[in-house]
């Protein structure tokens, strides 16, 4: 009886794992099988010559190029905004904050990390409408607002990775600087931060991935169906994940649907690439510590 029960255990653990892998494999395989044939120059640039499109001389219609540029701009802007604040907060949390303050701040960042992205989007949207009413009719939902909202969304990721990286530094290394007469400030900037750069970098990559894939925030704060390449941060823009969402519900013909599959594959590859590098960095890092010990 017992023996059967434990055989069942192995069936369960292997069965669960295989089920999960099969489900994930089906999702990815389905996309690749249906969409792979559509991957090509035309998917990205439509009928516009590649060079003219890249030089922004001619607008691209019926291609993913504007959405890809939109996503790129969005990612750069939002990570650019969140990075200084996130790093500084992470350093403060790891190196300065203590006791009550430490746990209070941690609680706030946990709440922020758990917040649904649509709530952040609603916040960004309503702030914009509020400002539009009260201050200037020239404030609309736009690329800048989307980037700002996304920055809020990824802030806790940056804080957490920075903090965790700094706190993981062994005490002996932490004390070398001060023992040689370095100030706390010098120690942070010349020893601790450089030392945790790789794991901070992996946090940044995860934040980029989060910015690139999030749809709920941008659909309330300025993404549109068609806008072309963003020319300023105060205008509307297109983005890959929103494009995928839009096409999935309302493709007009087989061509559009093919582009939807193509967009999904591109976004998937982009995220896989970012996450892959991030994990590779983290693994190399943990190995290095492991060898040190």
């Amino acid at each position: 009886m017992m023996r059967h029960a434990f055989k069942l255990f192995h069936v369960w653990v292997w069965g669960s794992t295989l089920l999960l892998l099969a489900a994930t494999g089906t999702v990815i395989g389905f996309l690749l099988v249906r969409g792979w044939a559509g991957i090509g120059r035309e998917l990205v640039f439509g009928e516009t010559p590649v060079l003219a499109a890249l030089m922004l001389q001619r607008p691209v219609f019926d291609g993913l190029f504007p959405a890809m540029v939109g996503t790129l701009a969005l990612v750069l802007l939002s990570v650019g905004m969140a990075l200084p604040v996130g790093l500084a907060t992470g350093i403060y949390l790891a190196e300065y904050a203590t006791g009550r303050l430490y746990s209070l701040l941690s609680l706030f960042f946990d709440i922020l990390a758990g917040m649904p992205s649509i709530v952040v989007g609603l916040f960004g949207f309503s702030i914009t409408i509020f400002l539009h009413h009260r201050f200037s009719g020239k404030i609309y939902p736009c690329l800048f607002i989307s980037a700002l909202s996304l920055a809020v969304l990824v802030l806790p990721y940056l804080i957490r990775t920075t903090q965790a990286a700094l706190e993981a530094i062994p005490a002996d290394l932490r004390l070398i600087g001060p023992s040689l007469g370095a100030t706390r400030f010098q120690n942070i900037f010349h020893v601790l931060v450089p030392h945790s750069l790789k794991s901070i970098l992996s946090g940044i990559l995860l934040a980029i991935g989060r910015c690139a894939e999030d749809t709920a925030v941008i659909m309330l704060t300025g993404v549109v169906v068609s806008a072309g390449i963003p020319k300023s941060i105060w205008g509307n823009f297109e983005a890959l994940p929103f494009y995928i969402y839009y096409i999935s519900a309302q493709y007009a013909d087989a061509d559009e649907l093919t582009r939807g599959y193509g967009a999904a594959i591109i976004l998937l590859l982009l995220c896989a690439f970012l996450f892959g590098i991030a994990f590779w960095l983290q693994r190399r890092l943990s190995q290095r510590w492991f060898e040190r010990v």
Partner: peptide, 9 residues
Amino acid sequence: PEVRISIAG
């Protein structure tokens, strides 16, 4: 190309 038209539903 100097004119930009953004379309939302």
